[in-house]
Amino acid sequence: MCLYSVVVPVYNSEHTLQELYTRLEKVFRETIKEEFELILVDDGSRDRSFAVMQALREKDPRVKIIQMARNFGQHPALLCGFAHVKGEFIVTMDDDLQHQPEELPKMINVMKERDDVDVIIASYEGRKHNLIRKLGTKLSVWATSKMLGKDPNLQITSYRLIRRFLVEAMLKTNTYLPQIGNLLVLSSNRIINVPVQHA
């Protein structure tokens, strides 16, 4: 059995964490049928997120909690979570349910079929963002492609499935203001998109 480590940066998400856990647990139990751990990194939340995480951990020992001293941002929170993963494959996803756990099997199935792929990044079908955010994303993609020599058609999102050796490589980099997507592109050319539904 493979072990999957799901790393979720948490910021003021008291209203979505229980549902995120419930849906993830069901997907791994009924569809993926593999072992998983859920690493929740509290990035300086000011609501009851930490209390909700504690309740989840009391119910399920597969839930791990890391509490940051203050709000550092999504990417440092992910790197902090990466330092504690035990899985052969690492999943990153957001805490607000825009990344649907039910779409994860699509990414895992492709990874199982493709030995030539190190990272799968979800690309969004029916993206639910407003026009300004979509334009900002396009500009960001263009700039990143120019700076890093990235395929401009490769979508960079925060819903990802990564082989463990790349996570270990990222932990060894000493980068100010790290961006996980950029670190992945610099570490491997074997990255593909898999389309998923975006909530």
Rank of each mutant, 00 (worst) to 15 (best):
A51N: 08
V91C: 06
I121Y: 01
Q67N: 07
L135I: 05
Q54V: 00
G73Q: 13
S123G: 11
L97G: 03
Y124E: 13
L135A: 12
H129I: 09
A77C: 14
L139S: 15
K128F: 06
D95C: 11
S123L: 06
V110P: 06
A55M: 07
A83M: 09
G73W: 09
M93I: 00
R127S: 14
V63A: 03
F82H: 03
T92S: 11
A55H: 00
D118N: 13
P61T: 08
R133L: 13
F89L: 13
R70S: 13
V141H: 13
H99T: 08
K112D: 15
L135V: 10
K138R: 06
W142T: 08
R46S: 15
D96M: 05
M68G: 07
L79G: 06
I90R: 04
R114D: 11
T137P: 01
E58Y: 02
L56W: 02
T137R: 13
L104S: 00
F72N: 07
D94N: 14
R133A: 11
D96L: 05
M111G: 03
H84T: 07
E88H: 07
Q67E: 10
K112I: 07
S140T: 08
A51I: 04
V85R: 02
K112G: 12
R48F: 11
R57F: 00
Q98S: 12
A122S: 12
K64C: 07
R57M: 12
R57K: 14
G81V: 09
D60P: 10
V52Y: 00
A122K: 05
V91E: 02
I121H: 03
I132L: 15
L139C: 15
D94F: 04
G81K: 07
